[in-house]
Every structure is written in C-alpha cells, then in structure tokens.
C-alpha cells in the first residue's frame, strides 16, 4: 500500500516537472513574432478619445469597460457568498464578540500609538490615488485596497465589532448599480454633449470613485467577516 502510494507520488512529481519542461521548451523556442494590434490601438490617441492621461485607466474605464462591469459583479457575488453561505449565521450565539476580548488581546502600545499617527495619512493617500487615477498611476482598485487597509489598521488598534456590515452590503449593491448604469448611459448609449472635454473628466473621476468605494466596502466586509465570524 505504501509502495503504490509512493509510486503515485513520484508519478505526480514527474508529471508536474514534465509539464513545466514542455511549456518552458515551447516558450523559449518559439520564433513567431506576434503583432500587438490592441496595444497600438489603445496607445494611439487615448488622451483625445477618452480624456484620460493614464492609458490603463483609459482601457478599463472606456475601451474595455465590460471587464470592469463583470469584475464588479464578481466581487459582489463573492461578498454575498461570504455573508450568506456561512455556518456562523445559524450558530450566531457561539460567535458573539465578548467585551473582555479588548482587554485580553494585550495589544502592543507601540503599534497602537504609531497606527494612530499613520491612520489619517493612509486615508489621505487612498483618496489621492482614487481621485488622481486618470492622470497618474493609480485608480479605483488600488485606492480602494488602500482605504480597506485603513479599516484593517483600525482593527489592530480597536478590535471591536461595532461596524454595521449590512449597511456596507447595501451600500455595495447600490454602488454596483451605479457602476453598471454610468458606463451604460455614458459610453454605450453615448448620452454626452458635443464637447466632451469636461464630461470625460467628470465621468472618469466619478467611475474611479465608485469603483474605489465598492472595492473598499467589499474588502472590508470580507475582512471583518473572516475576523469575527469565520476565524472563531
């Protein structure tokens, strides 16, 4: 029995090594030079066509906005799954947060002081990345992740569950509706004035802010659910 399992183990290792070798061989020995028509199209005149100085923002907010829509849907579905398909929902009485935990955690004084100083700057840089996402490196996803980091540092300082996750979940659903409606009206149906210089900027800033708030609420819901419900 142990002999056969060892043989199977060796076969699996051999399979993985062989697969990696074949793919590496094919990758290193191909001589075909592929053109980059998508890159040429996207970097040709993105400032004139979309009003964004950041080409990546121009792609995920205007040229390929379908990607962003379905990514937002995917994040919302995963948040709904984390909230609703959980064993802790039906057994909530075992998962009640105890008030004494705050004293028993014995958090480091250095961490608490330093995080208290850093906290406003984390919020500030998150908002900066979101607002300036279309003129500099950054955007809604990155800024939302930085904002969620601010909530995680809040958990380090004050590990208490006084956050209403249902409000955040409702906010995320409403934000998803806005994220779907804004490009549908502005990009697909072309409901825009003749001179789109100003409205393009408004559209980009608004979409980046919506995506940033949505990623922020989604990541904080996932983090707080895992810390206070799943990890017990």
């Amino acid at each position: 029995m142990a002999q056969t399992s060892r043989i199977f183990h060796a076969v699996r290792i051999l399979f993985a090594v062989l697969g990696a070798a074949v793919v590496l061989f094919l990758f290193l020995n191909h001589s075909e030079q592929l053109d980059t028509p998508l890159m040429d199209y996207f970097t040709d005149d993105f400032l004139g066509q979309t009003g964004a100085q950041n080409s990546v923002a121009a792609i995920y907010l205007n040229y390929r906005v379908f990607d962003t829509l379905f990514e937002a849907l995917m994040l919302m579905v995963s948040v709904m799954e984390v909230i609703n398909v959980s064993w802790a929902n039906k057994h909530a009485e075992q998962y009640r947060f105890e008030k004494d935990d705050f004293n028993r955690k014995n958090n480091s004084e250095i961490v608490i002081r330093m995080v208290g100083i850093i906290y406003p700057f984390v919020l500030l840089i998150g908002l900066y990345i979101i607002i300036n996402g279309h003129v500099s490196p950054g955007g809604g996803f990155q800024g939302g992740a930085v904002l969620a980091t601010a909530l995680i540092t809040r958990y380090l300082v004050y590990p208490n569950f006084d956050l209403d996750l249902h409000v955040l979940e409702k906010l995320e659903k409403f934000l998803f509706l806005s994220i779907v409606m804004t490009p549908v009206l502005y990009v697909f149906m072309q409901l825009q004035p003749a001179d789109t210089t100003l409205t393009n900027q408004i559209y980009l800033v608004a979409m980046n802010s919506l995506i940033g708030m949505k990623v922020f609420s989604g990541l904080s819901i996932i983090f707080y659910r895992f810390v206070f419900y799943e990890g017990r």
């Binding site: 980059t36 990546v56 792609i59 995920y60 990607d67 962003t68 996803f141």
Partner: peptide, 10 residues
Amino acid sequence: DPVPSALMIT
C-alpha cells in the same frame, strides 16, 4: 504595453 496591466487589475 498597457493591455496586460489593465487585464491583471481586474
């Protein structure tokens, strides 16, 4: 090339 970056963000 900005296309892979935009794809990987999502």
